[in-house]
Amino acid sequence: MTPAMTAADTAPKTYAWEIRAAGLKVRVGRKKMAVDGLDLSLSTGTHGLLGPNGAGKTTLIRALATVLRPAAGELELFGTSVSGVGDLRALRRRIGYLPQEFGYYKRFTVREFVEYMAWLKEVPKADIPAAVQRAVERVGLADRADHRMRTLSGGMVRRAGIAQAIVNDPAVLLLDEPTAGLDPAQRLRFRELLQELGRDTCVVVSTHLVEDVAAACSDVVLFADGRLVFQGTPEVLAAAGGAEYPGDSPLERGYSALLHNSEQQGGTW
């Protein structure tokens, strides 16, 4: 019998923010600074990371996942500086990450894939079968768990990706465009899952769909050209827009208003 609560669950937190960035700069390639002086503090909850294409959302998420090293500034996860520690293992054990275009092994079954990821994430060996089953059930793939990945539809593959991200019960969950390829019904189910996860996890969801944010996020982070434009609740974002700004919903109008004010968009799109 596994205990429902462990000492680690009830221990007090020793940090104020799960994610804290100060003057964070992350370089992509040799010259481009995709995240350029970002100040951001995120705690438990579901945070929607909004921004136009090319705003640096993916780069920011990769830096938060410790795949990219910050070029300058400070990035703290769980109160520990990422650039300071030589050993990222302890941090990475508490992170779940779904890349935008995540590759997988086509010949693996869903269960084998999630099991393999659990092994890579150093989930204790005895806990792996139960953790995998739980993750697969949470994304509604239990009936497909023993099917090979290549037989799945795009939406199911994405759900398998979400399953591998949550298999280690992460304290910080980073999802890059997770709703791409989901049909409307799946998207609704996914929003419920996001709300559920956001209760005890710091979830960062990057998206360019404003309605996803409205439905599932407790907090909006608006991001353009590598800088923070706005952080606050969806209501405040909606209030920022007036009828003169383009958009079909108050949130969309608020989004265009804030982006228009920061006025750093390149090109006509």
Binding site: T66, V67, L88, R89, R92, R93, P99, F102, K121, Q164
Partner: peptide
């Protein structure tokens, strides 16, 4: 799965 692997503790 390189991107996935690169972010794991192992």
């Amino acid at each position: 799965a390189y991107e996935l692997t690169a972010a794991t503790p192992r």
